[in-house]
Amino acid sequence: MSPALIRFENVTKRFGTQVVLDGVTLEVMEGELLVVIGHSGSGKTTLLRCVNGLVLPEEGCVLVDGHAVAVGDLTALRRRVGYVIQAGGLFPHMTVEQNVAIVGRATGEDTARRSARAAEVLATVGLGDLGPRFPRELSGGQQHRVGIARALYADPAIMLLDEPFAAVDPLARMELQDEFVRLHRQLHKTMLFVTHDVDEALYLGDRVAVFERGRLLQVDTPRTLRQRPASEYIARFLRRRAAEGTT
């Protein structure tokens, strides 16, 4: 198996008295698409935010490409890690191209280069000609793709996606998921993908990690999870959510 690009070693995080992550140990392999699933409050988003240092754990340690995530060089780290959040998180006052190329602007690339690279990544997500538009002129699905294009801009080895498709209607979401799978195969990036949608998790993930109240209950391939859930809780969780369909 390929080496781990992200390692969580016994990570614990509290917000006040509430334990959000409770001794989590987990590895994400190079090129893998690992989906983290759980109810809201399970700690899945906090786990993801530990990777780019938006959250720093009290105990344990997070290693990205062998280096511990620590205070100090966080900005540089974040520019090497793609970050996509719900609804895209696009800046409303910037054009699509300016949104996509903002990391280039932050690192001081010249405009010509930024423009060329933005066109490249926009083409990758199938939005080649939308560069001059403003986010509000785009459909929900298009905005999400711009969010992904922005994360791809610096060609990061790692991408973090926090419920990127949660706010889209079911039809558009399926389309985005299909495209995302295609993109993952094409780019072969290491991805940590957070969702609360069981179907999405089982459909997209190379492996799926199930979280509950800050604890990692089980991490396995979708197939293993379905066939040999580690507990009755997980079995029920998968069944119920799958039966309800997408919510």
Partner: peptide
């Protein structure tokens, strides 16, 4: 807060967040 989170997570410095995101908005 989502925009600020995105800006920080993308790797903008505090100064860049102020000048490029907060003040223009």
């Amino acid at each position: 807060p989502e925009l600020l989170d995105a800006a920080e997570g993308i790797g903008l410095s505090t100064r860049q967040i102020l000048l490029w995101v907060q003040l223009p908005i």
